[in-house]
């Protein structure tokens, strides 16, 4: 059984935000909505101060709290572990937003564009999806790319056409994507060879973004 995961090499991430920009371009998210964002964590005290960049987004949890609370069944989990939202079912109650421990979900009530406020330019108008207004949205692991790529016989995480946009765009090779159930996949090898952790693991949600430690 396929189970898609993302692996982040924190030692490699330089905080360039290219993944954020790539996600916004690929998914046409409005201003203030970042399905993939990079946290800038400054920790420690002088002179032992550390700065770490931590990419975050929907963790596509094994046991997603957003799905169990959803009153409309708009949030679902596919067999491959990707958590999806049916924009035509969602009522925009926001319950999933407060249930998510990773602040990965957004709700935008009015059309808003980076260039021109409520008046989109030609490119923005082309990508605009009215169904996303007033409902919950979040990272999909670029599920459309994955599905289309698999149909063409491509391998997500290996072939760029079948891989999430953020992973493709990463200039430092910090983001990796693949099937954790395949022992030879890159993500499986990385996790086997390195110490790793996940965010807020104590909550038992089973997040599927793994962070490599040094």
């Amino acid at each position: 059984m396929t189970r898609w995961v993302m692996v982040v090499d924190l030692d490699r991430c330089v905080g360039c935000q290219t993944c954020t920009a790539a996600c916004k371009q690929a998914n046409a998210t409005p201003p203030d909505v970042q399905w993939r964002r990079v946290l800038d964590m400054e920790t420690g005290a002088y002179p032992d101060v550390r700065r770490t960049f931590v990419p975050v987004g929907c963790m596509h949890c094994d046991d997603p709290p957003c799905m169990s609370v959803c009153p409309s069944t708009a949030t679902r989990k596919r067999a491959d572990g990707i958590v999806t939202i049916d924009y035509d079912l969602c009522i925009g109650c926001g319950y999933c937003i407060v249930a998510c421990p990773y602040q990965a979900r957004y709700r935008t009530d009015r059309a808003n564009f980076a260039y021109g406020g409520s008046n989109p330019n030609e490119a923005e108008a082309k990508c605009f999806d009215e169904r996303r207004l007033g409902v919950a949205t979040k990272c999909t692991f670029c599920v459309d790319r994955i599905d289309a790529g698999i149909e063409q016989g491509l391998t997500p995480g290996v072939d760029p056409e079948a891989t999430p946009a953020c992973v493709n765009s990463c200039i430092a090779g910090a983001l990796h994507f693949g099937d954790i159930e395949r022992a030879e996949s890159k993500v499986s090898v990385l996790l086997a060879k390195n110490h790793h952790c996940r965010m807020h693991e104590e909550l038992g949600t089973g997040p599927r973004i793994y962070y490599l430690q040094d």
């Binding site: 030692d11 964590m41 931590v54 990385l190 430690q213 040094d214």
Partner: peptide, 24 residues
């Protein structure tokens, strides 16, 4: 609850070797 990880990597300075095999 904000964001939290139990451990963050310590950036290596010039000349330091990583202790972890990255592989893959």
């Amino acid at each position: 609850q904000g964001f939290a990880l139990p451990h963050l990597p310590r950036r290596r300075t010039a000349g330091e070797e990583s202790s972890a095999p990255k592989g893959g």
